[in-house]
């Protein structure tokens, strides 16, 4: 099957790739661009491990085709830190032990960063409902929610 040429931006860098029209954006990120931070937990948009942003909007990259990335700006977990400086969410997730195995962590970080950009002062319920599309099987979410709430408070103070 012939492949399609796509030009897009990932974490601010311009990239080009050829992909089969059936390949998902997640397939392309992982297998063609070697950005393996986004994970495939289900392939059906139920687990959120593949969360990325497309033009600032949070999406499951397993539910979008690679060819649909043409002309878009994609954000992945690999783009969250600035150089050697971690994003406050990344720092708090480590401090709070908001991860055990860590497979859901990239998706949850992408999702919570999108939340805090939209709503810098979320309630606990708002955080829980925003993250309801990101499954974590290890933590029971307790330490994740606490890490997000504390990050939000700290970022509000800093701004």
């Amino acid at each position: 099957m012939s492949k399609t040429h796509v030009t897009t931006k990932v974490n601010g860098d311009e990239v080009e790739f050829l992909c089969d029209p059936r390949e998902t954006l997640l397939d392309v990120l992982r297998d063609r661009l070697h950005l393996t931070g986004a994970k495939e937990g289900c392939g059906t948009g139920d687990c959120g491990a593949c969360s990325v942003t497309v033009d600032g909007r949070l999406v499951c990259s397993c539910l979008m085709l690679g060819v649909e990335a043409e002309g878009k700006e994609i954000g992945t977990v690999e783009g969250i830190a600035e150089g050697e400086t971690l994003h406050p969410l990344q720092q708090k997730f480590i401090e709070y032990a908001a991860l055990q195995c860590g497979i859901c962590t990239p998706g949850i970080l992408v999702a919570t960063k999108a939340l805090l950009e939209k709503n810098p002062d979320p309630t606990e319920s708002e955080v829980r409902y925003w993250l309801a599309g990101n499954l974590c099987r290890c933590t029971g979410y307790d330490k994740i929610i606490r890490a997000v709430m504390d990050t939000a408070a700290e970022m509000r103070e800093a701004s």
Binding site: T36, G37, A81, L86, F93, I94, I103, T105
Partner: peptide, 23 residues
């Protein structure tokens, strides 16, 4: 005590290599 885990940085930056991340 409660120090940060040694694999924390890899796990929050997406570079930790899980089963499907090998090529």
């Amino acid at each position: 005590t409660r120090p940060n885990r040694p694999d924390g940085l890899d796990k929050v930056t997406g570079r930790a290599k899980f089963g499907a991340d090998a090529y």
